[in-house]
Design a protein around this nucleic acid. Sequence first.
DNA 1: GATGAATGAGACTTCATTCAT
DNA 2: TATGAATGAAGTCTCATTCAT
Lengths: 193, 193, 193, 193
Amino acid sequence: MAENGARKSRGETRRRIQEVALDLFAEQGYEKTSLREIAEVLQVTKPAIYYHFQSKEEILLSIFQNLGRPVADAIAWGEVQPRTLETKRELLRRYGAALDATVPLFRFMQENEATLRGLEVGREFKDQMTVIGGLLSDPGSSLAAQLQCMGALLTLHFGTFALPHFEGSDEEKREALLSIATEMVERAHGPQD
Amino acid sequence: MAENGARKSRGETRRRIQEVALDLFAEQGYEKTSLREIAEVLQVTKPAIYYHFQSKEEILLSIFQNLGRPVADAIAWGEVQPRTLETKRELLRRYGAALDATVPLFRFMQENEATLRGLEVGREFKDQMTVIGGLLSDPGSSLAAQLQCMGALLTLHFGTFALPHFEGSDEEKREALLSIATEMVERAHGPQD
Amino acid sequence: MAENGARKSRGETRRRIQEVALDLFAEQGYEKTSLREIAEVLQVTKPAIYYHFQSKEEILLSIFQNLGRPVADAIAWGEVQPRTLETKRELLRRYGAALDATVPLFRFMQENEATLRGLEVGREFKDQMTVIGGLLSDPGSSLAAQLQCMGALLTLHFGTFALPHFEGSDEEKREALLSIATEMVERAHGPQD
Amino acid sequence: MAENGARKSRGETRRRIQEVALDLFAEQGYEKTSLREIAEVLQVTKPAIYYHFQSKEEILLSIFQNLGRPVADAIAWGEVQPRTLETKRELLRRYGAALDATVPLFRFMQENEATLRGLEVGREFKDQMTVIGGLLSDPGSSLAAQLQCMGALLTLHFGTFALPHFEGSDEEKREALLSIATEMVERAHGPQD
DNA sequence: GATGAATGAGACTTCATTCAT
DNA sequence: TATGAATGAAGTCTCATTCAT
């Protein structure tokens, strides 16, 4: 049908479903978003969605698999490095960057924890923060040091979502946030050197 | 029914509904928790719940009104104090204490942001953190200082939920967390003295 | 509501659902009968059905439990009797009577075997005929004798459903059928005496 | 694609569809068997099935036309014979043989009566048994004689499906079954000679 | 000879809510 | 103070079928 410029090419509809779904999931929550709604936005019928995904949950899963990459990579990198201060600095840098690139996914995750708890894919992702926390602190360090590292991570992580509330260029704000987190880790790391 | 020692006194059932509801809302999310479920746990029928509350949302509302007090009080206190470093220290202390007493409610809020966004009562509460953030930092301070204060708050706030993952007595952990947050605020406050 | 003569009394709707469901299941098959249809006939809404039964399958189950009794009783009786010719005669008599009283259920079963195979309750019932077959023949008897007994049972069982095609009073026809079956069993039993 | 030894020849796929469809229809019932399932087993797509058949029902129809032949032939033969005892004996023999060759189809028919009732092709087939019943008994005979003939037919027909439960060679069992049915017809026929 | 993509209809089921008692 | 019975709306999902390629 050459006359139809909107002719769907292979894989295009699938991608559009993921896109719209993430938007709606993030905006209204996973439970409150119905497939009817997604279909309406896309101007297709519900079964069209089922042609591309086996279930509502599978849509979510595919989104995680697509967007969750950067963070997973940062963690994978961290896990094979020596646990030096420099590694920690670099890990924060990488995690922060990954976070920036995946803000919508993480915002969705934050806001739908209760739902994700029942979905496995959510549970896997939740653990990542624990893993990073572990990479930042040192096994035998004091409670204060451990909490300080966790605080650094929390600041970087949740702070990312608060950035729009502050003035300044994105670049500027991200660097400021990263340097606060880095400083906290350095202070926690220092005494052990 | 004088013979029944378990006779429900006025208001008791109401309180039990709130209790069970918060538990279930926090565990499974607000949307996924049905009134049928709440009724089942309480061993009453659904209409019995409607005798005590006008709607599902009203249950949530009443929970916020009951449990949200301590935090609101801490904020109200902060708003009428002079903005000295000592005030900030005390504010963190009070906020931390209020948080401890209200962990289930806050856990629920964190995990159901998307849902709460549509419920007004949720929106009001969300703003509180912004207000406290404002009380901790100083209007004209640098971006770094502002972010540092926000980091302190984030650390205290979200750290509270992470405490169970660490070893040590509750008392000990809470103090360590508070002192990290305090230190951050002090550093942000310092240069301006 | 005294003015409403059709006011539903406890359990009445439940019974009506079973009644209508069996009718429709028998007429169109279990799969092809939708809850919407049942609800329409009853002039209630679908959720009203769900108030009385947990699922479509549970409706079927309850029908079996209600109507399956007579046959189950006949079998239970047969299982504790000495295996004499007289017992066999009486067993056919009882089975035939139970069958008469439960024609709609059995018609449904015959006509929905494939569906019932997936439903457990169906499987249990299916086995009953095997059990009766066993009670009619003798363990060590010849193949011919065993098949003859099975033929008697088949004649009695399926013949019951064919009776309306013949002329004569119900009483008359049932007795004729029973005597044919009895004669077959007697011939199979005879040689061993 | 000359290189592909498994190249589908004209009509081969069609036959495979019928084969798989009958298997699944017999196993799960017509309604519960979806075209998706058939397509999956065959490793083709749904539209491929529509290339060979116009509808789901047409698949069923074609199966009946292919496999129903032997029985229809037996009946056709019977209808033009003089109604002697020998004809009846031969008719049972032919019907039994036709049945053996078509067990899967008849099993499906037995187990999906309710569904077939709505499908016309099913209704036609159902009548055959009535026709044979008519050929076996004599118009003016007694009720007992008529029922006895019907019993013979039922025994032969349904007994065929029960044969696997008994021990012995297939040949042996079939002959035993046939002789039981024949004997019944003879007894019913006898008095009139 | 077959496929990718999509559709309209309808299935079972659950929910928050109501009303008479 | 609570219950039995019922409802309207909506949910996820599957089905038979079609059509352009």
